[in-house]
């Protein structure tokens, strides 16, 4: 216990996030936590454990599976939910396509856009009035304007010009039937904070965050993992490299970075010295300057 009565940056962020999570539990009828197994949602889950202990986390976990997830990630997701005794709901883009809820554009390989209708259908199915996610404002410019409690209309749309003012720690959580709230307890966390918290809390993360051998091809200045979904094109050189992921999208749009970092300490040192942002390795954000803003307006996470 600190004798000087002051919180360091991680303790401050932790207290703030726990406050937000408890506000969700107290003010919503049917909230859920979006849990992908990625590093941000791992922190989110630990914060939820702390917010409600010794009670169990009083809301189910939801994951939208694109079918293009890294297998390591899904394995981790399922195991972590079992360990916590939490209810895990998985809805797949595959199934949404089969049911006509999500319609792929001809030739479109990425399932990123198709997560949106799949998520909105799940929200409708379970009548969720709040979805808690691990998004952070430092990830991307459009996220920088997001509130902790981000209102979505009955189409799941975000209206950046008409957001509720958010003052002090007083959150307006009220929604009408059919509307819902996206809640981001990690709003003020940076990538470095997330890893420092993983270190402080000794949290397990999926193995793909650590350095491993993998076959990759070079595309648009990035190392992409070779998989059945992303086979090498004729004439493309396949290299076996020591790589890891810095941020996880689905397997066809996540660039690998060459890295020898095989411990959390190494990763922290690497990020502290990094000269590229986390999302620099996400092909889906690069396509246009306003890519994230467009997806968010439509109801993306």
């Amino acid at each position: 216990m600190s004798v000087t009565y002051h919180l360091d940056h991680l303790q401050y962020l932790e207290s703030e996030a726990i406050h937000v999570l408890r506000e969700v539990a107290a003010e919503f009828e049917r909230p859920c936590i979006l849990f992908s197994g990625g590093k941000d949602s791992i922190c989110l889950l630990r914060l939820a454990e702390k917010a409600f202990r010794p009670s169990p986390i009083p809301m189910p976990l939801l994951n939208i599976d694109t079918g293009h997830h890294f297998p390591e990630l899904n394995e981790f997701r399922d195991r972590r939910a079992r360990e916590l005794g939490a209810r895990l709901i998985v809805r797949t883009v595959e199934d949404a396509i089969a049911r006509g809820i999500a319609v792929p554009t001809p030739g479109e390989i990425s399932r990123n856009r198709l997560q949106i209708p799949t998520l909105l259908a799940a929200i409708e199915e379970f009548r969720f009035d709040a979805c808690v996610g691990g998004a952070r404002r430092d990830e991307e410019k459009a996220r920088a304007k997001e509130r902790f409690f981000s209102f979505r209309d009955s189409f799941g749309q975000w209206d950046p010009r008409n957001q509720r003012p958010e003052v002090w720690n007083l959150y307006n959580t009220r929604v009408n039937p059919g509307e819902h709230m996206r809640v981001f307890p990690l709003s003020n966390w940076t990538e470095l904070d997330v890893w420092e918290y993983i270190r402080r809390e000794k949290l397990e993360v999926p193995s793909i965050y650590f350095s491993h051998q993998r076959l990759c091809v070079r595309r648009q200045g990035q190392w992409m993992p070779v998989t059945d979904l992303l086979p090498p094109r004729p004439g493309e050189e396949v290299r076996e490299l020591r790589v890891r992921v810095r941020t996880i999208g689905d397997i066809i749009s996540t660039g690998m970075i060459e890295s020898p970092a095989d411990s959390v300490d190494d990763i922290i040192a690497e990020i502290a010295a990094a000269r590229v942002t986390e999302r620099g390795s996400r092909a889906d954000d690069k396509s246009s300057e306003a890519a994230m803003e467009d997806r968010k307006k439509l109801g993306y996470f």
């Binding site: 304007k145 709003s187 003020n188 803003e293």
Partner: peptide, 20 residues
Amino acid sequence: GLRAEREQGITIDVAYRYFA
């Protein structure tokens, strides 16, 4: 950050930045 404010050349909302 937002396209709308690029067009108008003014910041229309509160944006949060992080540095260390």
